[in-house]
Design a protein around this nucleic acid. Structure first.
Lengths: 209, 209
DNA sequence: ACTTTTGCACTGACCAGTCAGTTCAAATTG
DNA sequence: CAATTTGAACTGACTGGTCAGTGCAAAAGT
């Protein structure tokens, strides 16, 4: 008896519970960490029985791993889109970086828990999902590195910049500033935060205005 | 966290085992997280009996909390020292920031595990040691903010910069760049990394040469 | 139309194992 | 000798994962 394939892929029902589980897991793990979060808690928050978790995911780790992949792919797509949009508009590479900073802020604004959880896991070693994490991380950072490299090629950036390290630093700048924003000054507007980071990016910090 | 002779308070012997426990706990928790690390593991890695852990610390959380406080105080002292040293040498505020970046790198170079663990916990909520963490975080960030504020006052920095946000962004820049350095390019020299970050700080990214 | 079958999605009680924390007599150390 | 450490046994709460069984909507059979 074939199931009625509603839309592409799995059944709608299953996909819906998966989504609920993702959402429940994300907030709990962001708050407490992976090990401190129990499967019972996730199930309860998702409004689902524990067995359902194991019906949908092979294990707690697998649930987490797919959550991670899912989230970072969303971010990567968003960054790439921002860069390409700037390209189409004939903007400079600095404009592209600026657009990506904004895209990053928008993402973190929308998924603060995911971001927090991602940061908490990123540099850990000896964990089951470490390799998965490395792959998706590289995808995201590569977008930034790509723009930097093109900027060097067309002479907009100095040839002496260290592409990998500069990309890391830029990501860190946005990441930490945004997390602090969400944690300690959540009332501020995204534009406000973006403006401050833009200024930093363009070296308009030193020098009297 | 170097041992400091018989400082005020405890006997040298006790302090030594405490130190061993800190070091064991730091690496284990950095790798696996707090909840995934067992007290038995910590004791074993420290080459000490489990009973000793509880003779020296009231609980696993307390051990962790004191570890956290201890580490951040070390960092704060180091940052403050860098800023004051620049002051004495008659350097500018940018020089002070640069010196603090270096101090940060030196710290992370020496205690990568601690840094990692700190980042993993910093934005978590609902944890026992959250308040402790907030206090020490503020101490460290305040040093950076102080330099920025003085720079604004003496006209070296634009009055339009957002001190708190810029401080966060700078911290993030160093933090993420350094963690990536240690994780993915550990063979690079500190000077090398410092040079790249200095360039970014001084806006020497855009513009040729 | 109407019954029966099929199998997907979900349930929740249960189990075997793990871990923080306790206890304490004996050993070690300075 | 007093402070500190040892080491092993023990407890009791908690956790990841399992599994026999339920509900139900669509397909098949009549």
């Amino acid at each position: 008896m074939e199931s009625s394939k509603a839309a592409s892929g799995g059944s709608t029902r299953r996909e819906a519970t998966r989504q609920k589980l993702y959402e429940a897991a994300v907030t709990l793990i962001a708050e407490q960490g992976f090990s401190a979060t129990t499967v019972d808690e996730i199930a309860e928050r998702a409004g689902v029985a524990k067995g359902t978790v194991y019906y949908n995911f092979a294990s707690k780790s697998v649930l987490f791993e797919e959550l991670l992949r899912h989230g970072v792919e969303l971010l990567t797509a968003s960054l790439r889109e921002a860069a390409e949009q700037t390209e189409r508009d004939g903007g400079s590479k600095v404009d592209a970086l600026d657009a990506m900073i904004r895209a990053g802020l928008v993402f973190i604004d929308r998924y603060p828990s995911f971001t927090q959880l991602y940061v908490a896991e990123l540099w850990r070693t000896n964990r089951a999902w470490q390799s998965t994490l490395m792959v998706v991380r590289q995808q995201a950072v590569a977008v930034v590195e790509g723009v930097l490299r093109e900027g060097v090629k067309n002479g907009e950036f100095s040839e002496e910049i260290d592409v990998a390290l500069t990309a890391s630093a830029l990501v860190g700048m946005v990441l930490v500033a945004a997390l602090d924003w969400k944690s300690f000054q959540p009332e501020r507007s995204l534009d406000d935060v973006h403006a401050a980071l833009s200024r930093l990016l363009q070296g308009r910090v030193s020098g009297r205005r």
